[in-house]
Design a protein around this nucleic acid. Structure first.
Lengths: 235, 235
DNA sequence: CCCGAAAACTTGTACGTACAAGTTATTTGT
DNA sequence: ACAAATAACTTGTACGTACAAGTTTTCGGG
């Protein structure tokens, strides 16, 4: 099936945003400019922009051009309350286990496909701290789907997802998660600096991406004592 | 500002779905039929249908008419894994405290507006069980915003949200939630049939609705031992 | 009666036009 | 030099047309 015209314009604009050609806050070309540049009608230009709105890349206001926005806001993922908000202020991420190859773990809560198991597994583990207090241990696993040099790279702005988006043009298309309240066992308790048996929140996530072989399996242990986990949704 | 034409058609169709004129699985009129019936062009009809898709009321396939769908699927709310799936089979809801007026609680996690506080508070509490095992205690609070006879009514299909949608045409437009892993205290432990101090998950939610005075403040205590809490998102 | 081809229908994409309703830039009057 | 009026620009809505690409229904031959 041939790719629709609006779809092509949408992809082009999305890539420009992802690659930093347009940054958050920047204005996109007006609809009429897009019509000229790509030799399309306004209907088609608007359709492409609509798509970008739906995916949270831009916002539009009548009379104004489209503005590039922070996409994460639109994702509605669970996050530590007051983490990204208080960015920089006493918030830090520590790489506990740098990215490297490991055996695929047995139980990732979600089933791992044969195609994924056929490839090596990349894993890394990080600590998230607020004002020196560790609030989360985050472990990630995913198949080495030919993302060259991934192991050597530093993360874009310290963010794994931003790295995928900006450098590899891979976006999250779906996520499933499972939550458990549980008693902290030895290692988790030590890392989160809580007593053994203290209640912690375990979040297991499977992120499906636009790359067919790349699913990210995430396991988070959170101390929700002072900083709860939360999110927002718009319907 | 005058209501847009497509907006009106959208509302009309939505109301027909909500009121049961069209049920889940039913086919909506074709675009051309809508054009005839409402004296509009296909552009406008399609715009209205697009809106319904966005809000999860219908699904569309090329060549086929629009099909009415179960909206809850599109909401991506946290829910007990295997609760709605195993519907009927050993799944039950017990009304612990029937709907009635109470004083507004002090701390609902989210701020309550003056306009809400000026009205009486309605509260009820339910137990959710799977195979006889209590897995959740759910408490709800909201302002008495003139939903007449609410206290007397039975819930539509046992669902609070379905009651709001079908009988009062009120939809959820937004939600914020906060999660805490915590040790079960006396009453919660007793209701969930776990030891005092056992780890339980507390979820505090604020649902914003299409009714300006109606926000629903929800507090859930979950025993995630056998049935984890989870959800799914599509972007 | 059943099956496959054809017709009728339905949604998706794309063109083009016009005006309404906002925002931004420019001009004009004091 | 500043403020208000004006013009230019930009997005939102709505009209209309045409064809592509699916699905459902109808019809005809065996």
């Amino acid at each position: 099936m041939k790719e629709a015209r609006y779809r092509l314009i949408y992809r082009l604009l999305k890539e420009r945003i992802q690659q930093g050609h347009y940054r958050v806050g920047d204005l996109l070309p007006s609809e009429n400019e897009l019509c000229r540049d790509f030799t399309i009608t306004r209907t088609t230009a608007r359709r492409a922009l609509d798509e970008l709105v739906k995916e949270g890349f831009i916002e539009r206001t009548r009379g104004r051009r489209s503005v590039v926005t922070e996409r994460r806001k639109a994702l509605g993922l669970l996050s530590i309350q007051g983490f990204s908000e208080a960015a920089g202020e006493g918030v830090e991420t520590e790489m506990l286990t740098p990215p490297g190859r490991v055996e695929w773990p047995r139980d990732l809560t979600f089933p791992v496909s044969e195609a994924e198991l056929a490839r090596p597994c990349i894993h890394f583990r990080r600590l998230r701290k607020i004002k020196g207090r560790t609030v989360m241990v985050a472990s990630e696993w995913f198949a080495d789907a030919g993302l060259d040099r991934f192991l050597q790279e530093d993360f874009v702005e310290g963010s794994f997802f931003r790295t995928l988006s900006r450098r590899h043009l891979i976006e999250i298309t779906r996520s499933s998660q499972e939550l458990h309240a549980m008693a902290a066992d030895g290692e988790v308790a030590r890392l989160l600096e809580v007593a053994e048996g203290a209640p912690v929140l375990r979040i297991c996530i499977k992120f499906t991406t636009s790359h067919p072989l790349l699913n990210i399996y995430s396991r988070l242990y959170c101390n929700t004592e002072s900083y709860p986990i939360g999110n927002q949704h718009f319907y």
